[in-house]
């Protein structure tokens, strides 16, 4: 039972992290190969604040997310002006740089040996509530002027500008919100696992999140969440196949990308089920 609990908890945390990737990739169409680094920033900042100053969990959770946002601002401010392909390079470099810094400032972070002694403050119910809250915030964001402008610039920056959309600002706002959400995922992870090590946050994690988003649907939050759920638990379910599981995982991903290039859900959202009814009612009225 403990084992299932821990898988579910970690899946929930991954889902929140994936929301960040979804926003950057699904909404504004950029590739962040350093998204996991914001998780590191959130996790380390909140953990160190607790260990050094004994601040209570809700406060450090906020500060951790804020620190990730600040890091997002530092990376985002210069990169939103760049072409999309460069953004993946910059975020990749940023992610690896963060890991380096964490590894090399051993007095502060414990370096490669990791940061130990973090009190346990996170359990499955808190993670579930967090997933629901974050999902609500992100879904509202997508369905607001921010989401629409982001999606507009995702398909066509030139046309978006011709509609008066401040493309760079929009990219930055979305990027910052994504950093904050991912940072919060980092806080949850730190106070759940009670142990942090820099190696956990390298680019393969960011790449995995990108895969999750693409499998779920290029522009579907519903898809991203379901695919996060399946693809994080899948390796565990395939555990009996030991070393074959990575292969099976990869084959499944390849098949989906090959036969459904827009991902399983494309841009379908579950909210359309009830939106259709209301708009049909409105047009009759």
């Amino acid at each position: 039972m403990d084992y299932i609990y821990s898988i579910l908890t970690l899946t929930g945390i991954t889902m929140i992290g994936v929301m960040g990737t979804y926003m950057v990739t699904g909404l504004t169409g950029q590739f962040s190969f350093g998204q996991a680094a914001f998780m590191a920033v959130g996790g380390y900042v909140s953990a160190m604040l607790t260990l050094r100053f004994g601040l209570p969990f809700p406060v450090v959770a906020l500060l951790g997310a804020a620190a990730a946002t600040l890091a997002g601002w530092l990376v985002g401010l210069p990169t939103v002006r760049l072409r999309r392909d460069y953004i993946s390079l910059v975020t990749f470099g940023f992610g690896e740089a963060i890991i380096s810094v964490l590894n090399n400032s051993a007095q502060l972070t414990g370096g490669a040996e990791g940061l130990v002694g973090i009190p346990k403050r996170v359990d499955l119910p808190l993670v579930l509530v967090s997933v629901i809250c974050c999902l609500f915030l992100v879904a509202c964001y997508k369905n607001s002027r921010y989401g629409r402008q982001s999606l507009a610039l995702r398909t066509d920056e030139l046309a978006a500008r011709s509609m008066g959309i401040d493309v760079n600002r929009m990219k930055l706002v979305t990027f910052l919100f994504a950093s904050a959400i991912t940072g919060y995922a980092g806080v949850l992870y730190a106070f759940y696992s009670q142990y942090l090590e820099p190696g956990y946050y390298n680019w393969t994690v960011s790449a995995e999140w990108l895969i999750i988003v693409f499998v779920g649907g290029i522009n579907s939050l519903t898809g991203a969440m379901l695919s996060a759920l399946v693809l994080t638990t899948l390796p565990e379910l395939l555990r009996f196949a030991s070393s074959w599981r990575i292969l099976i995982y990869c084959v499944i991903v390849l098949l989906i990308i090959n036969y459904r290039p827009n991902g399983i859900f494309g841009d379908w959202e579950i909210s359309r089920l009830w939106k259709k009814k209301t708009s049909a009612g409105a047009s009759k009225a």
Partner: peptide, 10 residues
């Protein structure tokens, strides 16, 4: 635009 540029995701 000459070559129509609509927002496909919307």
């Amino acid at each position: 635009f000459q070559n129509i540029r609509l927002f496909k995701g919307l």
